[in-house]
Design a protein around this nucleic acid. Sequence first.
DNA 1: TGTTAGCACTCCTAGTTAACGAGTGCTAAT
DNA 2: ATTAGCACTCGTTAACTAGGAGTGCTAACA
Lengths: 343, 343
Amino acid sequence: MIKMLTERQLFLLQVLVDDYILSAEPIGSRSISKRGDIHLSPATIRNELADLEEMGFLEKTHLSSGRIPSEKGYRFYVDHLLSPILLSDDEMRNIRKAYTERYYEAEKLIETTAQILSDFTSCTAIVLGPELLDTKLKHIQMIRLSDNRAVLIIVTDTGHVENRAVVLPDEVNGSEIERMVNILNERLIGVPLYQLKVRLQQEIHVVLNEHIQHYERMMVEIEHALTLNVPDQIYYGGKNNILSQPEFRDINKVIPLLNVLEKKDIIHGLLRSPKSGIQIKIGKENKLVAIEDCSVITTTYSVDSEHVGTVAVIGPKRMAYPRVVTLLDIISKSLTNNLNSNY
Amino acid sequence: MIKMLTERQLFLLQVLVDDYILSAEPIGSRSISKRGDIHLSPATIRNELADLEEMGFLEKTHLSSGRIPSEKGYRFYVDHLLSPILLSDDEMRNIRKAYTERYYEAEKLIETTAQILSDFTSCTAIVLGPELLDTKLKHIQMIRLSDNRAVLIIVTDTGHVENRAVVLPDEVNGSEIERMVNILNERLIGVPLYQLKVRLQQEIHVVLNEHIQHYERMMVEIEHALTLNVPDQIYYGGKNNILSQPEFRDINKVIPLLNVLEKKDIIHGLLRSPKSGIQIKIGKENKLVAIEDCSVITTTYSVDSEHVGTVAVIGPKRMAYPRVVTLLDIISKSLTNNLNSNY
DNA sequence: TGTTAGCACTCCTAGTTAACGAGTGCTAAT
DNA sequence: ATTAGCACTCGTTAACTAGGAGTGCTAACA
């Protein structure tokens, strides 16, 4: 059972977190008391802060320092004190402007989204591309490049294009390839990508064996080519923004963080969240040593009302939560709108 | 006219640079004199080093410190004293092993190359992908995704695949699209990508106008789609390796460096070199403030005996030149071989 | 009873000083 | 030509100091 906080304690906690987010330095009672909207003496504030510390919302960096929020403090702030801010007209205009350009590939649009988000938040932005494996096959085609080389092109219903190099056996001729691709198209269109391989082995196997000579050698190639274990694409914006934060003045804190940002599988595991809406993970809540001094805010974007990808911002725990939450909301919605109307 | 260096000065310069590359600390006369292969007193060595300093090959960090190589010193070392090293059997085996895997896309192969190179050099490796605009069109295809959306697929003779989203005018029908794509293929196959747009406007314009209804609206889309100002792909390996170097302990040196690595156009300008063979640029020779403490070693790789891309290593000026040069040579050749035999 | 002024105390920071060591340049002897 | 010796420079480290910011606690106040 959590003891209720008084109005005044709530207010002081909010003020302290807000101030600390701006200054990055421990906040003392005197500096709070000097604010125009507070009519309390430093001594009174000290008492309240001592109580808040006792309850675990605040910490001191050393015995006689000012206070900084603890992770529990940030958590409370984020859960109960977060007042979404309004962006200035100017900023709204800038965001919209960034989206007016027409992008000829969804990839470019997503890349730009990451860039915008990082520019406006001064944090690192990460966008996970749509989950490829859930999309369905629209078309397969093989383009022959030379006697024994070809490229297999796979188009999904979302307009995504994958391609694979294929080595052709010497004996195979053009019409045979054509026949094979036709069979593949007949049988596989509409099949989700993650099922391709299984379907190929179970159903197409037999059919192809009947119609195509030199089938076995071809099969090995096709099977490889259709094994699409492509990890979903990850797009970054402002990868180095976080380096300017005072908490990362020490290079030894930076190295593991940057290294983990490069590890696509880890980032994937960190950000791919089943829930929709804005999610905030603070510090150790992320269960990853390299980013235990960071907060991660995620939300999803959709295509055809289905959540297909994640938009995330990663920054220091001392992040401008109200601003970032607002921006993330606006920008993920813009991305959703843009994707649905153009692709 | 450069004054000749004595044998002994050459030797001492080499020893000093070698030692400094290993230790990253100013080298004093005493430590050189203690090496087994040198039978000179510290005083003698001091005299020689003073001469080398006077000639501009060495520097001191402060009045009574040991010496470090100047940029001129590195330049001389690289031009005249560089003795290529042999890699251990073990390392050769590891490199070969990394290349045994079969890659189904040239992109993956190049990516792996950057990774290997960075792992073995402990520096950052950058590989510029093949120059797209010089390759020739092999095939164009349009895949319709829905009533008014399609994706245009462009395959080059090197097997590279580009794709563009296209919005179809409402009035256009399937057979018309087919006819148009056929015309494009007839007229444009074999044309280098950078000429596509011009050829489209000059030649195809007329033909299409005759055969296709609703030609104007379609044309805008196609023209956009064929405007392939794709900057050639850049692949990185070990982006953060350089952060472990003692010369980058200060975060303020790191930020501009990492930022410049993200700027694709700048990296492009820095690395795209017309000359073949191994090129070494030391510090300020790179004409870029952000990397004035770095050296960049580049070479090219080829497809069909034509230099199509660049492989580069970027590290501190105090880089293990002999080792990096050897590795760059071996690995760029491996890449060339692999590309030519598989794609 | 809640609020506040006053005060002793803690701890960080910056600046000073001193000792030490690594390294140099120069001179004179070999 | 080489080298031993020596005075000198400068960076590094540790110890110490003074100042300042901030705290907790106590006692007085409204």
